[in-house]
Design a protein around this nucleic acid. Structure first.
Length: 423
DNA sequence: TCTGGGGTCCTAGGACCC
DNA sequence: TCTGGGGTCCTAGGACCC
């Protein structure tokens, strides 16, 4: 049996944990650049604010109902996530941290009665220790546990926990569950399935796996089997090796100048290299891309990416930054209003298991030590305390930097922003 | 008219997830 | 005027190998 533990409205719950005045009010948290609503409290959902709704389209609702609007605060959410996950990992013999706000637990060998108590107890513990409310779905496959979790979250009478071992209950749940809500069925598949007359999870389960594989793909075939109670997606305790690292941003304002885009790309490259070193990896290639605003087709459009292969896998900022700028120069075109740029690192290998090249010149002497010092300083004194000249000076070139107008304090990760409690 | 079998690697595009 | 960011997997087609 698997349990899926999912934090309710996670980003909003993190904000509420430190600002109780947000309790009972409609609250939304915005994406980077204060663009879209990416987390909504139940009150905000009830007002009809959709997932991913652009802020400028919901201004009226926000004003009329006094919705609390917050910029995203990833330092806070990341730290709160780590706290929740450590509690969950200790609670079960095996756990898979599936996303920032979800984990699968292995409940093998636990009988029905014990699972019941376990679920309620775990929920209470996470709430008490972190302030975060969670819902728990239990079932013999991950896909069914996901479905159970949906019901646990939306049906108050269940008190946050639903166990679908019982076949009659599972059958009822499957019949009511829209196929588009099934884990692994997105917008496109939903449309194609509905066109075939498959509208519920039960109908998808009853489809022939072979037919599904022929008309769709293996992944959906696995989903069919999982809905039928056959567990084919295993719990993955150890995180798989990372394949890529990306740093991409939408600009605060549209940008037309090469100098500004170049600064942005350099900043993303340096940040990506920092992530690379933190994960003890080396990159074999650097991809850079730029694009105009796809939402305004009446404007001239341009989008290109380029991959620059390094002679030898590296992790120093200088190499990554140089490659990214070389790439940018190759794809740059004057005369467009650019909206977004990014840098991705590909061909990642572990720092101790990479293939040395016969022909690449060796890294600059002292480079590793230099990067160590830069990372250390930036960690202690704040991101960007030490940076490359190519990244520009924030005060002088705000144009491309993202907007974040209502960010809450880094309550748990910065001494100066620690909340004070007066008795 | 007839034209093998078994592979790998790379890239682009499509689909999904949170 | 204002529309996020960071990932994964699968498939098809092209190019190549023996």
């Amino acid at each position: 049996m698997f349990a899926l533990v999912d934090c309710n409205n996670f980003y909003v719950s993190c904000e509420r944990a430190f600002n109780p005045a947000l309790e009972g009010r409609p609250v939304i948290v915005l994406s980077n650049n204060d663009g879209c609503a990416v987390a909504r409290s139940n009150e905000a959902k009830a007002l009809g604010i959709g997932m991913g709704a652009p802020l400028f389209q919901i201004r009226d609702i926000v004003k009329r109902h006094d919705v609390a609007v917050l910029s995203s605060n990833y330092a806070l959410y990341g730290d709160m996530s780590a706290r929740v996950m450590s509690i969950l990992s200790e609670a079960a013999p095996a756990a898979e941290v599936y996303s920032i706000d979800e984990a699968f637990l292995d409940l093998r060998g636990m009988d029905r009665a014990r699972r019941e108590a376990f679920g309620q107890e775990l929920r209470a513990r996470v709430r008490r220790w972190t302030g975060i409310p969670v819902s728990i779905g239990v079932a013999p496959t991950k896909t069914l546990a996901k479905m159970a979790n949906h019901y646990a979250k939306k049906t108050p009478a269940l008190e946050g926990v639903l166990d679908l071992e019982d076949l009659r209950w599972r059958e009822r749940a499957l019949h009511k569950f829209p196929v588009g809500e099934v884990w692994g069925v997105g917008r496109r598949l939903n449309k194609r399935l509905e066109a075939m007359g498959i509208r519920t999870a039960a109908q998808l389960r009853d489809a022939h796996p072979k037919m599904i594989r022929q008309n769709f793909n293996v992944t959906l075939e696995r989903t069919v089997r999982e809905l039928g109670g056959q567990s084919v997606i295993a719990l993955e305790e150890a995180a798989a090796a990372r394949q890529s690292i990306a740093v991409t941003r939408t600009f605060g304002e549209k940008v037309t100048e090469y100098a500004a885009v170049s600064e942005a790309v350099a900043t993303f490259a340096a940040r990506a290299a920092e992530k690379l070193r933190r994960q003890n990896l080396l990159a074999g290639a650097v991809l850079a891309f730029i694009q105009t605003n796809r939402h305004t087709p009446q404007d001239a459009q341009y989008a290109r990416s380029i991959t620059v292969t390094l002679p030898e896998a590296r992790d120093d900022s200088y190499t990554v930054l140089t490659a990214a700028r070389e790439g940018l120069d190759a794809i740059w075109r004057d005369g467009f209003r650019y909206q977004k740029a990014g840098v991705m690192l590909l061909g990642l290998v572990g720092a101790r298991q990479f293939q040395r090249s016969l022909f690449a010149s060796p890294p600059v002497a002292g480079s590793a030590q230099l990067m160590g010092v830069i990372d250390h300083l930036n960690q202690r004194m704040g991101r960007g305390a030490v940076r490359f000249g190519a990244e520009g000076v924030a005060a002088q070139s705000g144009q491309w930097r993202m907007r974040q107008e209502r960010r809450s304090p880094a309550y748990t990760t910065r001494w100066s922003e620690l909340p004070c409690v007066a008795a």
